[in-house]
Simulated assay, not measured.
Amino acid sequence: MQFVQGLPPGVYVGQTRVHHAKMLASAQPELAGFNLALHVGDDAKRVQQHRMALLAEFAEFGVDKVTWMTQTHSTICHTINQEIPFQALEGDGLVTQRKAHALMMMTADCLPVVLGNADGSEVANLHAGWRGLAHGIVENTIAAMQTQPTWAWLGAAISQPCFEVGEEVKLAFCSKYPELDSAFKAGEKAGKFYADLYAIARLILKQQGVDVVLGGDQCSYTQAEEYFSYRREAKTGRMATFVFMV
C-alpha cells in the first residue's frame, strides 16, 4: 500500500489502483481489477472480499472502523465519529475527529479530495465531480470541520485534455468564481471546453484558506493500467481514496 508523503505525523492517505495482490477474478471482463463498488453490477461477494482485504491492510495500522457512503454528486457532508449508522449515509463528504477511523470515497474520473488540519486531529474525504465542485462540496466540507484545514491532497481524476464539457459547465463555475475562466480551454466544437478539475479545486481550496495542495498529477482516463475510468468505459469498477489517523 502506498501512502502520500508530506502529511502530519499519524495521518495516512492513499488511493487504490486497478491492480491489487488480493483482487479476485471476475466473470465480467469489464469489471476486472480491484473494484470496490457495489453499485456497478459486480458480484457483491467479490466486492465485499475486496473491501475486507483492504480492511485487513488498514488493521495493521490499528484501524477499527471504516465508513463508506452512497455517493450522489451532492454537496452533503456528514461528520461521523463514534456512531455507526444502520443505513448507508448518502452524500459526498465525510469528516471525522476519531482516530483509527478510515473514511472512504469511490471514484472513476471524478476528483477525490482529502483535507486535514496541521496537528493531525481532524480529517475529511470528499467526492468532487464537476457538479459537486460547482455547487460547493469543498466549501460545505470545510464548513463542517471543527478546525481549519491546512492541507489537501487531490487523488487521480480525469485530466483536462480528456474532459470535454459544455458551456453550461463553464458558466456554473465562472459565475461563482470568475477567476476560473483560465481552467477552461476552448474545444474544437462550438460551445465545448476542456475543464481542468485540478485547477478548479486548487483555486477553490485557496479561496477557502488551504494553501498546501498535494497531488493532482494523475489522469484516470489515460492511465488505464492504474485507474478505472467511467468516461473510458461506461461499465467499470471504482477506486477508493482513503484517509485515517492513528
Results as ranks from 00 to 15, higher is better:
Gln2Trp: 01
Phe3Ser: 03
Phe3Ala: 04
Phe3Gly: 01
Phe3Gln: 04
Val4Pro: 00
Leu7Ser: 07
Pro8Glu: 05
Pro9Trp: 02
Gly10Tyr: 06
Tyr12Phe: 15
Tyr12His: 15
Gln15Ser: 09
Arg17Gln: 09
His20Thr: 04
Ala21Gln: 04
Met23Lys: 10
Ala25Pro: 00
Ala25Asn: 08
Ser26Asp: 05
Glu30Asn: 07
Glu30Ile: 07
Leu31Thr: 10
Leu31Ile: 10
Leu31Asp: 05
Asn35Asp: 14
Asn35Pro: 10
Leu36Trp: 02
Ala44Gly: 08
Lys45Met: 00
Lys45His: 06
Val47Ala: 04
Gln49Ile: 07
Arg51Leu: 14
Arg51Glu: 06
Ala53Ile: 09
Ala56His: 12
Gly62Trp: 12
Gly62Met: 13
Gly62Ala: 12
Gly62Asp: 06
Gly62Arg: 12
Val63His: 03
Val66Met: 15
Gln71Ile: 08
Cys77Ile: 01
Thr79Pro: 01
Ile80Gly: 01
Ile80Phe: 03
Glu83Val: 09
Phe86Gly: 12
Glu90Pro: 06
Asp92Arg: 06
Leu94Arg: 12
Gln97Arg: 11
Lys99Phe: 13
Ala100Asn: 15
Met104Asp: 00
Asp109Val: 07
Cys110Met: 01
Leu111Cys: 08
Pro112Arg: 00
Pro112Phe: 03
Asp119Phe: 14
Glu122Asn: 07
Val123Cys: 03
Val123Arg: 00
Ala124Trp: 05
Asn125Arg: 11
Asn125Ala: 15
Leu126Glu: 03
Leu126Thr: 13
His127Met: 13
Ala128Met: 03
Gly129Asp: 15
Gly129Gln: 05
Arg131Tyr: 09
Ala134Met: 07
His135Arg: 14
Ile137Tyr: 11
Ile137Lys: 12
Ile142Phe: 05
Ile142Arg: 01
Ala143His: 12
Met145Phe: 09
Pro149Lys: 10
Trp151Leu: 14
Trp153Ala: 10
Trp153Met: 11
Gly155Cys: 08
Ile158Asp: 00
Gln160Tyr: 05
Glu164Val: 15
Glu164Cys: 15
Glu167Lys: 13
Leu171Gln: 11
Ala172Gln: 06
Phe173Arg: 02
Cys174Trp: 04
Cys174Ile: 13
Ser175Tyr: 04
Ser175His: 11
Lys176Ala: 12
Glu188Asp: 14
Lys189Asn: 13
Phe193Cys: 11
Ala195Gln: 09
Ala195Phe: 02
Ala199Pro: 00
Ala199Asp: 01
Ala201Met: 05
Leu203Ala: 00
Ile204Lys: 11
Ile204Pro: 03
Leu205His: 07
Gln207Val: 12
Gln208Pro: 06
Val210Asp: 03
Val213Tyr: 05
Leu214Arg: 08
Leu214Asp: 02
Gly215Trp: 02
Asp217Gly: 09
Asp217Glu: 14
Gln218Arg: 13
Gln218Ile: 01
Cys219Phe: 03
Glu225Gly: 11
Tyr227Pro: 07
Phe228Ala: 02
Phe228Glu: 00
Phe228Ile: 00
Ser229Asn: 04
Arg231Gln: 09
Arg231Asp: 08
Arg232Glu: 02
Glu233Ser: 10
Glu233Thr: 06
Glu233Pro: 00
Thr236Gly: 06
Gly237Leu: 06
Arg238Glu: 04
Met239Cys: 08
Phe242Gln: 04
Phe242Pro: 04
Phe244Asn: 08
Met245Lys: 14
